[in-house]
Design a protein around this nucleic acid. Sequence first.
RNA 1: GGCCCCUUCGUCUAGCGGUUAGGAUCCAUGGUUUUCAUCCAUGUUACAGGAGUUCGAGUCUCCUAGGGGUCACCA
Length: 462
Amino acid sequence: MVVTRFAPSPTGYLHIGGLRTALFSYLWARKNNGKFVLRIEDTDKKRNSQEATQAILKAFEWLGLEADGEITYQSQRDAIYAKYIQQLLDEGKAYKCYMTKEELDALREEQMANKERAKYDGRYRNFDGTPPEGVAPVIRIKAPLNGEIVVHDGIKGDVVFQAEDILDDFIIARSDGSPTYNFVVAIDDALMGINEVIRGDDHLSNTPKQIVVYKALGFDIPKFYHVPMIHNQQGKKLSKRDGATDVMAYKEMGYLPEALLNFLVRLGWSHGDQEIFSMEEMIALFDPKDINKSASIYNTEKLDWLNAHYIKNTSNDTLAEMLIEFGVVLTSHDKKEILLDALKERAKTLKELAELTQEIITTPSEYDAKALKKALKGNAKEVLKNFATKLQSATELHLPSDYHHIMEQVIEEMEIGFGKIGQPLRVALLGKLGGPSLDVVMAVIGKEETLLRVKNLLESDI
RNA sequence: GGCCCCUUCGUCUAGCGGUUAGGAUCCAUGGUUUUCAUCCAUGUUACAGGAGUUCGAGUCUCCUAGGGGUCACCA
């Protein structure tokens, strides 16, 4: 069974890049009828927060990415890590190092000055003397001094590292006894049965260290997929400083979960020429071996297009529900269908959709100057008066076509083009040029409101 | 700096030795529309550079350049 995981550290909101690797992991697990588990890496007590964990879970909920089983919190697993530290100590695969931070820093500086690689010198590797007084030791793991470490990566292929280039006896437990990242990741992944690790390729160079841990503990090494980074416009790793990287910000901007997920799945992955993927299709078609090797630049132009696409294909009932959050309540409006059918063709986001709705249902309080100048030429006011008179005496006005019919009557009678009534009426109804079909607008706001808006324009001294 | 990874239109990508190098987005133009948007059509734009291997290279090899990642008692 394929078991994948997403393992964020709760130092802030869920990041767009993190979401993509989470999505990849989720899809791969679902495709294989496997498991997708969530592990919160909250061992850094200084930087972690409960709110951040909640924010991450909330984002998952919004997007409909459901994790399997209980959520694991590393902060609650100290006893487990302690057990494995002791085991390695007992087996002579790890040892206590009494070098102080100051000594370590000094060594590092000296090595840098000699243009050598900063590397622990192993001075306590085989130490059997009397330990110095008053120094709380760290625990270091015995890493291979030479030879190759090969990461079999499902995206990059076999990546070969030379032990002497990259390894030293790295710390697995700090002087306060707390375990370090590369140690606990390997233990957790192994204990949780994770056999396919999909993560950012910024972890690629950590992987040899984790392999050392796997081997020391006798665990099976999982299959790795190191996904290329998402870069910002400057070509650097996408970070929180780049703005709009909080997943939930996209909810507030009016993006649909389907659109965001569809957008992200196509960043670094593709299936021929296909652009639109439902969740079912993503699950059916996704395979991490098809992930690109190169980083991609974060650019949301396509997201807007996808979002518009998904808005057009969402039911009016669902849209009405989602619009509530944007301050527009249409759920029981009797012209909801007419209105949303017309507006959802024109909105790129739910926020825009809400604004467009407001523009229609709100009586204009002012008129766009350019629109007035353009529309109120010639006998425009006469046309509007004629239209108002006919509308006044009309009955049974329900559909856009009922209103359209009245407009046609005016056109025929006055022998004018459609634009001669359309433009001035548009200004009267919406206060500006542009916007949806006038017959739709009138059907939505009704006869009385239409008459009021026409009257308002005629009576304003313009 | 050491180590590792990467390099096709502005952007996301297809391509897996033989293609007029395809699609999408963006942009531009035209059509549809009373208008704007949608929608439809058309168009501009790419194999980082150099050597090799081969009858033939975007595709394989090497070199160069450029970009990125990582080198903690952070995760």
